[in-house]
Amino acid sequence: MHEKTASLSIKNWADDDRPREKLLSKGRLALSDAELIAILIGSGSKKESAVELSKRILALVDNSLNDLGRLSVKQLTQFKGIGEAKAITIAAALEIGRRRRDEESKRITKIVSSLDAFELLQPLIGELEHEEFWILYLNNSNKVVYKGQLSKGGITGTLVDVRLVMKQALELGAVALILAHNHPSNSLKPSKADKELTVKLKRASGILDIKVLDHLIITHKAYFSFADEGVL
């Protein structure tokens, strides 16, 4: 039997099960993640609808759109019912979402909370498969005057050039710093090296009357703030 006759086309669904019609009548916020993905893939199979297929896929990535967005086209096609065309559509849609978030993060210029710093840095390092250490340099109004990568590939005191950090801070006229690095393992627990490096940079900046306001550990969907947790 050809795929067109075997698949459960959206046109054949009951009215209450049609995500396209639901979006038009109730708005996009009324749709679940599975329903939105079902619109992308268009049809399921003879045994399951597109919504059921989408629910199954999401369940296998712990219902995380971030985790789904990190999968390659080849990995997506490993899901039963997802061919290359559907995989490409899913990958493209989630990449658009990631770029939209990246674009919105660039509008953040003033840091008033750890969440602001997370929203600014997560699109840059939250989904990387290796560690990177970044610093936000702030002026006396807590506005970001510069953000930059300090090291890549693992965080230890030997990889972070404290002199370079201080030199850049003085050249930029920065009065405060926010430290940040990602954990590809998704663990939010600071390591001994994380703590030692924080103390090292805090001591060095203190001599120059520059404050270390926070150190964030960032994963693809969450963060740990040294300041918020009272361990700075």
Score class of each variant (00 low, 15 high):
residue 46 K to W: 04
residue 145 V to G: 04
residue 122 Q to G: 09
residue 165 V to K: 09
residue 75 Q to C: 06
residue 91 A to Q: 13
residue 21 E to V: 10
residue 146 Y to C: 07
residue 69 G to A: 02
residue 199 V to E: 13
residue 204 A to P: 04
residue 213 L to R: 10
residue 119 E to R: 11
residue 88 I to W: 07
residue 84 E to C: 12
residue 102 D to S: 12
residue 182 N to Q: 11
residue 89 T to G: 10
residue 120 L to T: 08
residue 32 S to H: 01
residue 158 T to S: 15
residue 51 V to L: 00
residue 225 S to R: 07
residue 129 E to T: 13
residue 219 T to Q: 00
residue 170 L to A: 13
residue 164 L to M: 12
residue 121 L to I: 11
residue 68 L to Y: 07
residue 117 A to P: 06
residue 207 I to F: 02
residue 12 N to K: 14
residue 4 K to D: 12
residue 166 M to H: 00
residue 33 D to L: 09
residue 151 S to F: 01
residue 229 E to F: 06
residue 7 S to N: 14
residue 48 E to K: 14
residue 59 A to E: 12
residue 134 W to V: 08
residue 199 V to L: 13
residue 37 I to K: 05
residue 112 V to G: 14
residue 4 K to S: 05
residue 203 R to K: 15
residue 165 V to T: 11
residue 5 T to Y: 12
residue 104 E to K: 14
residue 186 N to Q: 15
residue 158 T to H: 11
residue 165 V to M: 03
residue 136 L to V: 10
residue 174 A to C: 06
residue 126 G to C: 01
residue 183 H to R: 13
residue 41 I to K: 00
residue 101 R to M: 10
residue 73 V to A: 07
residue 195 K to F: 01
residue 230 G to S: 09
residue 121 L to V: 05
residue 214 D to I: 03
residue 177 L to W: 02
residue 125 I to E: 06
residue 227 A to T: 11
residue 156 T to L: 01
residue 79 F to R: 08
residue 207 I to A: 11
residue 35 E to C: 00
residue 174 A to K: 00
residue 208 L to Y: 01
residue 115 L to H: 10
residue 145 V to Y: 01
residue 184 P to T: 09
residue 5 T to E: 14
residue 139 N to G: 11
residue 56 R to C: 07
residue 191 S to G: 05
residue 2 H to A: 12
residue 121 L to E: 06
residue 107 R to S: 15
residue 120 L to M: 10
residue 196 E to H: 09
